[in-house]
Design a protein around this nucleic acid. Structure first.
Length: 425
RNA sequence: GGGGAGAUUCCAGAGUGGCCAAAUGGGGCAGACUGUAAAUCUGUUGGUUGAUACCUUCGAAGGUUCGAAUCCUUCUCUCCCCA
C-alpha cells in the first residue's frame, strides 16, 4: 500500500498536487508540517496532522517538524474571522519548548535512515532583513495571486492587517528554505493550509525550478456539526498536566457512534482491515461501546503510554462501572490515589472539617468546585452533587471527618462526569 | 474630509424614563430517559440571600431626574455611503 493510499483509506486525504503519489513512491522524500507555537501544548486537533507524519515515517520517509518560531509571531489568517493577538516572545519560546517534547513521543527521532527532524523557522527568518525579503521572496509572487487565496478573500471585507496578509509569503518561504537547505520536497497539513501550501510550492517552482509536492487532510468535523476536539469547557490537550490522561481517555470514550469509525481510522495505528472489523462488531451492538473503547485505548497509548492508560481505565471502571459507595470505602489509599491521579484535587483542613462544614461552603468557599454559593445551591436543588457517590439533597447538609475515605480523602462529584478529590490534612 | 448607523448580560439579538438583572433564540451546566450515546423533555444560566431585599452590570467618563440600558454632554471604538 502506498502512503497516499493509506491516507485515503484513513480519511486523511482531501487534496493533493497531481503526481504526488508517484513522486513519493519513487524518490527519497522528506515531508514537513508546520506548527505555530501559539499554545503551550499541542491539541488533538494537531494530532490529526501529526498522524500524517507518523504514517509518513512508517512508510519509510523522513518526517520534518517545522516550528513556527517566526510565523507564530505573525498570526495565520487561515480559518480565522478576526485579526489575531500577537503573543509575547517569551511565551512563544516556552510554548515551543513544551511542544518539542510532545513530538518526541509520537515520532522516532532516534534512529533509522528516516529519523524525524525538527527545524524552527525563526532560525532563518531572524537573519533576513525586510528589504532583503521583499527582493528575495516578495518579487516572485503577485498581489493578485496572494489575494486570490480563500483565507485572504474571506477577510477582505472585514479587514486584514498587512502582517497577516504576509503570512502566506512567510510560510511559502519556509518551503523554499527547507527545499534548498534540507532537501525537503513534500508539505503536508490540514486543508485550511492549502492556500499557504500552494504559495510555497509556487515559490519553490519559480525560485529554484524544483519539483515539490503537497497533500492535505480534511478538517476533522463531528457528525453533529459541532467543533471537533473540544470537551466540557475546553480544548483537549496532549499535555497530561493540561488534560489528564483520564480526561483524555474519557474524551474518546464519549465519541458519538457516528464518529467512531472516522476517529479510529485517524487515531489508531491498527491496520485498516482490523479497524473495519472493529466497526462491524461495534455496529452489531453499539450499546456496548466497543468501538469507543478501542479508540480510547489506542489514542491514550499513543499519546500517554500503557501505564497511563491502565490508570485511566481503572478510574473509569470504578467511576462508571458498578462503583458504589461501598466499593469506594473498601479501596486502600494507594489504589485510591492512583485512580484519581489527574482528577482535580483540593486541600482542606482536617481541624476545620472535624467541626463540620456546610456543603455549600465546602463547594464554593473552601474549594472552587463551584464558582458561587448561588450555583452550589442550584446544583444541590438540581440533584447534581454527590459525596462519595451518595447524592446530597439538602442544602444544610454538614460534611465532617466521618465522610473521609481512609480518614483523608473525599470524592466530590458534580453531575455524572465531573469528579474532584478533596484531601484533608 | 463630509454624511449616516451602531456599541446590551458567553454569543446573536429585543428593550427608547419606573412593571429591567433585562424578552427570545443559541450555547453552557444539571436532571429524567439511555448505552458514560444520539434524539427528546425539564430545570437553570451576575453576586449576597430562607425569602423579601440589597449590591454590581447594558462601550467610557460626566450630567439631568425622586428614578436611566433608556434623556443630555464629551470621549473611544466599529460598520456603511460619498470624496
Amino acid at each position: 500500500m502506498t502512503f497516499i493510499e493509506e491516507l485515503k483509506l484513513r480519511g486523511l486525504l482531501q487534496d493533493m498536487i497531481p503526481g504526488t503519489e508517484e513522486f513519493i513512491e519513487n524518490n527519497e522524500v522528506k515531508g514537513y508540517i508546520g506548527y505555530d507555537p501559539t499554545a503551550p501544548s499541542l491539541t488533538i486537533g494537531n494530532l490529526v496532522t501529526i498522524m500524517m507524519l507518523v504514517h509518513l515515517q512508517r512508510h519509510g520517509k523522513t518526517p520534518v517538524v517545522l516550528f513556527g518560531g517566526a510565523t507564530g509571531r505573525v498570526g495565520d489568517p487561515s480559518g480565522k474571522d478576526a485579526e489575531r493577538k500577537l503573543l509575547p516572545e517569551d511565551v512563544i519560546e516556552a510554548n515551543l519548548a513544551n511542544q518539542v517534547g510532545q513530538f518526541k513521543r509520537l515520532l522516532n527521532f532516534e534512529d533509522g535512515h528516516n529519523k524525524a527532524i525538527t527545524v524552527n523557522n525563526y532560525d532563518w527568518f531572524k537573519n533576513i532583513g525586510f528589504i532583503e525579503f521583499l527582493r528575495d521572496a516578495g518579487k516572485h509572487l503577485t498581489i493578485n495571486y496572494m489575494m486570490s487565496k480563500e483565507s485572504v478573500k474571506r477577510r477582505i471585507e472585514t479587514g486584514l492587517s498587512f502582517t497577516e496578509f504576509s503570512y502566506q509569503l512567510l510560510q511559502g518561504y519556509d518551503f523554499y528554505h527547507l527545499y534548498e537547505n534540507h532537501g525537503v520536497n513534500l508539505q503536508l497539513g490540514g486543508s485550511d493550509q492549502w492556500g499557504n501550501i500552494t504559495t510555497g510550492t509556487e515559490l519553490v517552482r519559480r525560485k529554484s525550478g524544483g519539483e515539490v509536492y503537497a497533500a492535505v487532510c480534511p478538517l476533522l468535523t463531528k457528525a453533529d456539526g459541532s467543533k471537533f476536539g473540544k470537551s466540557e469547557g475546553g480544548n483537549v490537550w496532549l499535555d497530561p498536566k493540561m488534560t489528564s490522561p483520564y480526561k483524555f481517555y474519557q474524551f474518546f470514550m464519549n465519541a458519538a457512534d457516528a464518529d467512531v469509525e472516522k476517529m479510529l481510522k485517524i487515531f489508531s495505528l491498527r491496520p485498516i482491515e482490523e479497524i473495519l472489523e472493529i466497526i462491524e462488531q461495534h455496529n452489531a451492538d453499539p450499546g456496548r461501546r466497543y468501538g469507543q473503547k478501542i479508540l480510547a485505548e489506542d489514542a491514550t497509548i499513543l499519546v500517554h503510554g500503557e501505564e497511563e492508560l491502565q490508570k485511566a481505565q481503572d478510574a473509569t471502571s470504578l467511576l462508571f462501572g458498578k462503583g458504589t459507595a461501598e466499593t469506594l470505602m473498601k479501596l486502600d489509599e494507594e489504589t485510591l490515589l492512583s485512580i484519581f491521579d489527574g482528577v482535580p484535587t483540593f486541600h482542606i483542613s482536617k481541624t476545620e472539617l472535624s467541626a463540620g462544614i456546610n456543603i455549600i461552603e465546602l463547594l464554593a468557599t473552601n474549594t472552587s468546585i463551584l464558582s458561587s454559593k448561588g450555583e452550589a445551591r442550584r446544583e444541590i436543588k438540581g440533584n447534581a452533587i454527590s459525596i462519595n457517590k451518595t447524592k446530597v439533597t439538602k442544602e444544610d447538609h454538614q460534611v465532617t471527618n466521618a465522610d473521609l475515605l481512609n480518614n483523608k480523602y473525599m470524592l466530590v462529584q458534580k453531575g455524572k462526569k465531573n469528579y474532584n478529590l478533596l484531601i484533608a490534612e
